[in-house]
């Protein structure tokens, strides 16, 4: 026989109440674990996450402030660090809008229309997620490097891509390519074409329909995608490391600057710059949680 009281208790628990609904016997509810198993599982989960997630985060800030606030500020304000911060911001400022426009266009085509080969196209859009960042950098070297396919032509025309800023931007665009599209596609598929058809029937032009009907419908999912895209763009390391050439003060983004400092045993400065990136990650997570809890329905239909 199922223990009705225990089920009630369990349901109340799930609803966030946690009150005992009149049960006197303390035995494991039939659709849940006993209090001991429950405590052990929660304990294991929290211990595992503390060890693997919390501790690395804490150590970044502890190491960064090891030599005091003065050294921390100095590490962030020296010219190479400032140049790295500026380059990182610039790369993100180019890569994110590019992928934003692409994401909207791709989602518009995929979600609002039926055409053959659609699921294949979606797989191709997701492709950069399955490619190692180092390989992402490598393919651009094979294309634009000194011995690359277009290397000779580029050298003759004095265009620098590899070991220069354009290569860094390209590699960043590659690794952040799917972020915005994959947030928008499932949502816009779910929303269908009804709203747009009404707007068109009422006499709106295509552009008006897009700006006044579609865009407001997807704005939070768009913001969500931009957030994730930006975090990855600013933090990308492997792909950028391959194409940058690491010319200090010129082609070093913040993650590359961290690597250089760390390899020079300048631990405090490395962790100081790293702490800024960690803060960016924390801000991203907070904004993500806020968007999910506040506008979950309007982001919806997401799959990680």
């Amino acid at each position: 026989m199922p223990d009705a009281g225990a089920i009630l208790q369990q349901n109340a628990h799930v609803a966030g109440g946690g009150t005992t609904a009149g049960t006197t016997r303390r035995r494991a509810p039939v659709t849940g674990e006993g209090p001991v198993a429950r405590a052990v599982l929660i304990g294991v989960a929290i211990a595992f996450l503390s060890l693997f997630l919390l501790l690395p985060l804490v150590v970044v800030f502890v190491e960064a402030l090891r030599a005091g606030v003065g050294a921390y500020v100095a590490a962030l304000t020296e010219p190479d660090a400032v140049a790295a911060i500026q380059l990182t911001l610039m790369v993100a400022a180019i890569a994110v809008p590019l992928n934003l426009v692409f994401g909207v266009a791709a989602a518009w085509a995929v979600a609002k229309f039926e055409f053959p080969g659609k699921s294949f196209l979606v797989s191709l859009i997701d492709l950069p997620f399955s490619v190692s960042p180092v390989v992402a950098g490598l393919v651009y070297v094979l294309l634009f490097g000194a011995q690359g396919l277009f290397g000779g032509w580029l050298r003759d025309h004095g265009v620098e891509i590899i070991f220069a800023v354009p290569g860094i931007v390209l590699a960043t665009v590659f690794v952040t390519f799917p972020f915005i599209a994959r947030e928008l596609i499932p949502l816009m598929e779910e929303q269908g074409t009804g709203d747009e058809e009404v707007a068109m029937t009422l006499g709106a032009s295509g552009l008006q329909t897009f700006w006044r009907v579609t865009l407001p419908n997807i704005r939070f999912a768009l913001l969500y995608g931009v957030l994730l895209c930006n975090a990855r763009a600013m933090g990308e390391f492997g792909a950028v490391a391959v194409v940058s050439g690491k010319i200090r003060g010129y082609t070093t983004t913040m993650p590359l600057h961290v690597e250089i400092l760390y390899n020079e045993y300048n631990s405090v400065a490395a962790f100081a710059v790293a702490s800024v990136l960690a803060l960016l990650a924390l801000v991203t997570l907070v904004a993500k949680v806020f968007l999910e809890s506040r506008y979950g329905d309007e982001i919806a239909a997401r799959s990680h």
């Binding site: 799930v14 966030g16 690395p56 933090g235 993650p255 997570l285």
Partner: peptide, 28 residues
Amino acid sequence: RYRFPGRGLVDAAVDLPFALPTAVAGIA
């Protein structure tokens, strides 16, 4: 399945490896 204090925080923390730049995770 369970409700416990700090659950929301733990849930958000799971995404940290997605958000934290790999070089930062590496040196940490």
